[in-house]
Design a protein around this nucleic acid. Structure first.
Lengths: 232, 232
DNA sequence: CGACCGATTGATGATGCTCAATAAGTGTGG
DNA sequence: CCACACTTATTGAGCATCATCAATCGGTCG
C-alpha cells in the first residue's frame, strides 16, 4: 500500500493514537482494491480474513435466513466494518456487497490481531470503537422493537435530512428497496408509508425527498437522544 | 469489598488476564449490594456511574419510547452489563431492573476507565468482551428481522432446553410476559404462539415447558449457527 | 377471604406481507 | 439513436401476522 493511501485511513479514530511503527506494520500487507457495483465482498459464515475499511463508495451489510434477506447496515466512507469478527477470529455474521463502485483497504485480520496484542493504544482505541458499534446496534434494535414502519421511516428521513446538511430537499443515499429492508419493511410498504407521510409535508420525486414541514414530521417521528442521536 | 466477594468475579474473562495490582485497584472502591425483586437499578439516559456485575439473581435490561416498553436482554449470573456505556462515559441506552432478588457488584466507572487506560491486558480483554456483546446484539437483530413470532419462540424454546441441560421438560427462567417482550411480541400473542406450537409437540403447564418431539420443533425453527450459536 | 396480577382466550382492528399488474427508469446492443 | 430487456417503484387486492381491548381463569399474598 502506498503512502498516499495509508494517509486516507491514518486519521480514523482506531488508528489515531497508535505509533507509526505499529501502523506501518498494519499496512505492510494491506491491499487496496476498487470494486464495481453489486459485488459480493464476503458472505455470512466465511472466516474473517480481512478487516475492511471503506474509503470511497458504499457497501451494504446484509443477513439471510431461510430464503429471506435483510439489510443490516449501509456503510459509508471512511469507516471500518466487521471489526468484531476480526478481533474474535470468528466467521462473519453478515454478508457484504458493494452498492456502488467502491474503494476498500483490506488489512489482514491476523496482522490486526498481532498489533492489537502488542500495542496498548490500538487496543484501547478498538475498545472505544467497538463500544460505539455496540451502542449503534442497540439503538437500531430499539428502533425496530419500539416503532412501527411509518415511525421508523419518519425518523430515518429526519436523520437523512440532517446528514445532507439540513436543506428541505435531499437525495436518498441508496435504492428505496434497500432502505426499506434496512428499516424492516417491504418495498411495497415503504412506498405506501412514504405516501402516507404526505400528510406531514413529505413529498418525493424519484430519489429526491422534500420535507416541507419538518415540525409536523418531527411531531410524528418523536426522535429521542437514546435512539436517534448518533453521537451518544 | 471483601476477598470472598472479589473471588466471585476474578474468574470473569474480562478480569482473567489482568495483574493482581490492577484488579485490586478496581475493587478498592467497589460496592457489593443485594437488591429485592422489581427494583430499578438505573434508567435509560442516566450517566453510567458504575459498571455492573451480576453475581446472583436475574436482571432485565429494557428500553422505552413514547409510552411503549420492551425487554432488550435478560442478564444471568455471572456477567457484567452496560460495559459500553462505562467505557464511553455515555448515558445508559437501557434501563435495568431486578427480576428476582439479586446480588450485584458495582465498580465505579471512573476506576474502570482509569485501569483500562493503564492496563493493556485489561483493554484487550475488554475488546474481546465488547466484540462478543456486539455480535450478540447483531444476532438478536437478525432474529427479529428475519423471523416471525412463532419462529422466534420456537428457537427460543430450543435454546432454553439446551441451557437447561437438554431434558424434555424445563422451566422458563422468567415470566412469560417478559419473554414475550424479549422476543418482540405481546403477551397475548406469546400465549397463542405457544399453543400453536402444540402442533410440534410443545406443551406447557405454568412455567414448565415440555418438548415431546424436538426434531419436529427444529424443523419449524430452523436454527442456524450465524443466529443461534451463542459461542460464535 | 378478597384484592391483585399474570396467563389465557375471543373478538376486532391495525399493520404488514404476498401476489399481480403497471408505470417509470436504466442500461445494452443493434 | 432507438428498440428491447431488465429492474425498480408504485398501486391495488387479498391475506397473514400482530396488536388492542375486554373478559375470564387461576394462582399468590396480605
Amino acid at each position: 500500500m502506498r503512502e498516499s493511501e495509508t494517509g486516507e485511513i491514518r486519521g480514523l479514530t482506531i488508528f489515531a493514537d497508535m505509533d507509526d511503527a505499529a501502523f506501518a506494520r498494519l499496512c505492510r500487507a494491506a491491499y487496496v482494491q476498487t470494486f464495481p457495483p453489486q459485488v459480493e465482498l464476503f458472505a455470512e459464515g466465511e472466516p474473517s480474513d480481512f478487516l475492511h475499511i471503506l474509503v470511497a463508495g458504499q457497501v451494504e451489510l446484509c443477513a439471510h435466513w431461510n430464503g429471506r434477506e435483510t439489510v443490516m447496515e449501509i456503510v459509508r466512507p471512511v469507516s471500518s466494518f466487521i471489526l468484531a469478527a476480526t478481533i474474535r477470529d470468528a466467521p462473519f455474521l453478515m454478508s457484504a456487497r458493494t452498492v456502488e463502485k467502491s474503494r476498500l483497504i483490506l488489512l489482514p485480520s491476523q496482522d490486526v490481531r498481532n498489533v492489537f496484542d502488542t500495542d496498548g493504544a490500538f487496543a484501547r482505541a478498538l475498545v472505544r470503537e467497538l463500544a460505539g458499534c455496540y451502542r449503534g446496534v442497540v439503538k437500531s434494535s430499539k428502533n425496530l422493537k419500539l416503532r412501527n414502519g411509518i415511525e421508523r421511516l419518519a425518523n430515518y428521513l429526519i436523520r437523512q435530512q440532517d446528514l445532507a446538511g439540513g436543506a428541505p430537499s435531499f437525495v436518498l443515499p441508496v435504492e428505496k428497496r434497500k432502505i426499506a429492508a434496512l428499516l424492516g419493511m417491504t418495498p411495497e410498504n415503504f412506498s405506501r408509508a412514504l405516501r402516507l407521510l404526505g400528510e406531514y409535508g413529505v413529498t418525493n420525486d424519484g430519489m429526491t425527498i422534500t420535507i416541507a414541514d419538518r415540525k409536523s414530521l418531527v411531531r410524528l417521528a418523536k426522535p429521542v437522544r437514546m435512539i436517534d442521536d448518533p453521537e451518544i
